[in-house]
Design a protein around this nucleic acid. Structure first.
Length: 283
DNA sequence: AAGAGGTACAACCGCCATATG
DNA sequence: TCATATGGCGGTTGTACCTCT
């Protein structure tokens, strides 16, 4: 949710002409536009160069001072953060769904606070977003639930703020009552077998647990590979909704399957949302 | 209506890993 | 091999906004 630029923006803006210092604080719409325009047109070589060049698309005849004034006085890190967490066109704008919350809980249990890895398996979501969600909602609820278990709580209901933003399943799982339920295959990728009709959605549960692939994301190249594969996730009821297709959820280590078997639809969690596989108990 | 307190979220900070010269 | 630059990550903070009293 974009917040309205605050007075801090105006103050900073007033000083822009005379102050060449690096800016901090919330990004103004103008800064966003400059950064977005620059990256979509020119891409990113290095973030520090983006910070210097964004907004510099002025003619060579522009006075130097004008160029400087239009330049983004943001650090490369700040530019990267803004792009990754807010401006990227593939980001989902809608609130985190119940299913996504369940995924977050499951993956956090598996991986700990490796938010970037968790985010890599949730297309359209950023590590920052997931981290914030965890810290502001799920963790508090778990703490509250733990308090109830130990009897230290006076039966106080889960922290309200929970105008029920997430589902009851999530609340149940978050109640710190193992064994928790997680999918047999983490919903990373989906594909369609060529011999349609030879199985059911439940077949997914016969595959081995997918704990390994997520542990294999040690290198950045692997992680970026996962990003590239996001378009391959399954959407129940797609164009070819014959109903007798076999759809299996794949994990990162299953990518040796021919690419043409992969169904090109957006949204990793669509498969989850369509309940095309059956969760199983995981110790 | 106004203030207090809570929540959600954007952004910063510090550390670490990697790349480059 | 070392120094420096850069990018990435997780933890944390600051604050706009919301809800309650």
């Amino acid at each position: 949710m974009a917040r309205k630029p605050t007075s801090r923006h105006a103050e900073a803006g007033d000083n822009e002409a005379v102050e060449a210092k690096e800016r901090k604080g919330l990004w103004s719409p103008e800064e966003d536009e400059r950064l977005y325009t620059h990256i979509t047109r020119c891409g990113v070589s290095t973030w520090s160069s983006v910070a210097q060049l964004a907004g510099k698309n002025l003619t060579a005849s522009e006075p130097l001072l004008l160029i400087i004034n239009h330049r983004l006085r943001r650090s490369g890190k700040s530019c990267r953060l803004r792009w990754m967490n807010y401006l990227r066109p593939d980001l989902k704008k809608e609130p985190i769904s119940d299913r996504e919350a369940e995924t977050i809980i499951s993956l956090q249990k598996l991986l700990g606070n490796r938010w970037s890895v968790i985010a890599a398996n949730m297309p359209g979501r950023t590590d920052n977003e997931i981290k914030n969600y965890w810290n502001s909602r799920i963790r508090k609820r778990q703490i509250a639930a733990a308090g109830e278990v130990t009897g230290s709580s006076d039966g106080e209901p889960a922290p309200e703020g929970e105008k029920k933003p997430v589902g009851t399943n999530e609340a149940t799982v978050a109640a710190a009552s193992p064994p928790m339920t997680i999918p047999a295959r983490l919903p990373v990728f989906a594909f369609q077998l060529p011999d349609g009709g030879a199985g059911t959605a439940g077949a997914a549960t016969q595959l081995p647990p997918a704990t390994e692939p997520l542990m294999n994301t040690g290198s950045e190249s692997e992680v970026s590979g996962a990003k590239d594969s996001r378009d391959l996730s399954y959407s129940g009821g797609g164009a070819d909704d014959s109903g007798d297709m076999i759809r299996h959820l794949l994990a990162l280590d299953d990518l040796e399957y021919p690419a043409d078997l992969l169904i090109d639809v957006p949204g990793l969690l669509d498969a989850w949302d369509c309940e095309m596989y059956v969760p199983c108990t995981f110790e």
